[in-house]
Nucleic acid binder design. Structure first.
Lengths: 344, 344
DNA sequence: ATGAAAGCGCTAACAG
DNA sequence: CTGTTAGCGCTTTCAT
């Protein structure tokens, strides 16, 4: 910066003021400085700047993985929001318990970011408390944490609408497949199960624990077993609501492999509306991770600027049903429904 | 840090030495300092440290998007490599031309990272030159750039093997579907086309431009049109080699919609081995983005430490054919092949 | 093995 | 509107 100052024939302060866009610089001086800076390919060192401002110009995100549709979409739309505000994005990927422990132990984000966005983790209260000690706004994304700012979709309503859709099609025996994350990571499972149960209750359909399965996403064997359990019930389900599209697709493939037709004999409904849902013509509950990312970014910027950190913000985004080809009226199929005609 | 020093009853220098793991600290003092640091939840400010060391402790990556299988996998495996070395990961997402221009204009990474990893961009020579001026190692990932360190898979060999596989199955009319990225971003298209052509040449099969189509990924309409062109050729292809799994899957869906059986009538081969390939039982050429990410990370760390930046490193990773259910011998189908029996 | 002192590059008062 | 001065929190000589 001294070089630029010398070249422009001004003091370092003036260069600083110019480069930060302060208005208290005369046009001609500004021009000289900008030219000098350009000629020298000068860029301000965030390091040095933040040393004195106390702000790092960086937003950190904590994610379980980057290798997932949700994270990819959310971060892809979070990034431009930050960029537009001149902020950098640094990413902490915490794929397993060991890394998780180490992260919460050392809190490397401390002093190295102005805000932290925590994605999709099912945190213990201890961990949340620990994050409170970070000395920066912490925003919880895709999860509701009481008393802390969060951005998430209304999972209960989503699952409620999905289940209603199946009920409206005449289904009464509706299975629900929960996803249990590996090593303590969880998604919005519980909320979605709640929505499912709520819909059944309001329709007067009795809950049946046998219809609820929980399995790790991507575990083919567990899925097959769970499906086997469902199909061998005295009253097997005529519809399956999977809490994630990926699982729904696996269900479809497994059923078709057994020559059980979807949706003629069993309807299948997913949740997410990932690209794969379209490829499989999967009916599903759509959520928009890019909206989530966008909102989370805006909220982060706001909280960074806010001097009043008291008013806890909750941003709840909507979901909506995308009816495609894997859900159909009960009687359209030939499976034995309540009153339908049995089949060989 | 002064607080820690006071609490441990030592000087700031000693705290610094301890926290950086230097050996020149007596065990007892080390213990005192570590305890004090822990009690005060102290974390070193990278900002202040880098001001004097000249190193930021950060690796930057430049990606066109995060919303893609390749990036997600690569970054998910890059991250732990950096973490293990105590480095942070900052991400620049450049989704469009405007952001691209602005990035190369301002080069925000300057002075704010110790190395830059450039993913999957088809850079102009001007841009590459500009990056050279960054004053840090720049590593090109998933692309070969002459004279600069890069990490990529052998696309030529991959496409060569894929095409050979189809040739070995008896196919002679093999279409190739290239992908053209939006707004100047390109993937390894050209290399793959080259491998395809090479395989045909070595088998003595004449090249036919009519069999090569180029379309933007995700453009349903363009795909349908391209397919229409292929299917209305005097000698239509009996196999389609798509340069990306996503396109291959779209091809399969389009063909089946028209009641053209895959692979009985037309074989389809992809490239990548994304999860969706497995879901569609797609034969494909596998590449491993996680290996790429891993190697890129290691290379970055190495170049950061190296004082000798002369020996340009190129890391070329292998691909391999994953034969699944969408490629089959020519005569297994009923389409009119060269000598096959025509069908109604 | 430890401490004292200097200074990394910048911004924030404060003068003028 | 611009320059001067004093640090921000750390690492690094250089002593001891």
């Amino acid at each position: 910066m001294a070089d630029v100052a010398e070249r422009a024939g001004v003091s370092a302060s003036t260069v600083s003021r110019t480069l930060r866009g302060l208005t208290t610089v005369s046009p001609e001086v500004r021009a000289r400085v900008e030219q000098a800076a350009r000629e020298l390919d000068f860029a301000v060192s965030r390091q040095a700047a933040s040393l004195v401002t106390g702000r790092t110009g960086t937003v950190a995100v904590l994610v379980p993985t980057l290798n997932a549709w949700f994270m990819g979409s959310a971060l892809s739309s979070l990034a431009p929001v930050l960029r537009a505000a001149g902020m950098e994005l640094t990413v902490y990927v915490i794929p397993d318990l060991a890394e998780r422990t180490s992260f919460f132990d050392r809190l490397p984000a401390r002093r190295n970011a102005d805000a932290l966005l925590v994605f999709s983790f099912d945190l213990t209260e201890e961990e949340t408390d620990r994050l409170d000690s970070l000395g920066m706004p912490v925003i919880y994304v895709s999860q509701h944490v009481d008393g802390r700012p969060s951005v998430y979709v209304d999972d209960v309503a989503g699952a409620l609408h999905g289940t209603r859709h199946l009920l409206n099609l005449g289904h009464r025996r509706i299975a629900f497949i929960k996803t249990v994350g590996a090593s303590g990571f969880s998604f919005s499972s519980n909320e979605r199960l709640l929505g499912y149960q709520q819909a059944l209750a309001e329709a007067g359909v009795p809950l049946d624990d046998d219809l609820v399965a929980a399995l790790p996403v991507g575990d083919q064997r567990a899925l097959t077993e769970a499906l086997g359990r469902l199909l061998s019930l005295r009253e097997p389900p005529t519809a399956v609501f999977a809490e994630q599209d990926e699982v729904a697709v696996a269900v479809i493939r497994a059923l078709r492999r057994t020559r059980i037709e979807v949706p003629e004999q069993v309807s299948v409904l997913g949740f997410d509306d990932q690209p794969v849902a379209d490829l499989f013509d999967l009916s599903t509950i759509a959520q928009s991770p890019s909206d989530i990312g966008h909102e989370a970014g805006r909220l982060a910027l706001k909280l960074i600027d806010d001097s009043e950190p008291d008013h806890t913000q909750h941003i709840v985004l909507p979901t909506h049903l995308i009816p495609r080809a894997t859900t159909a009226p009960l009687h359209a199929g030939e499976w034995e429904g309540d009153g339908g005609s049995p089949r060989a």
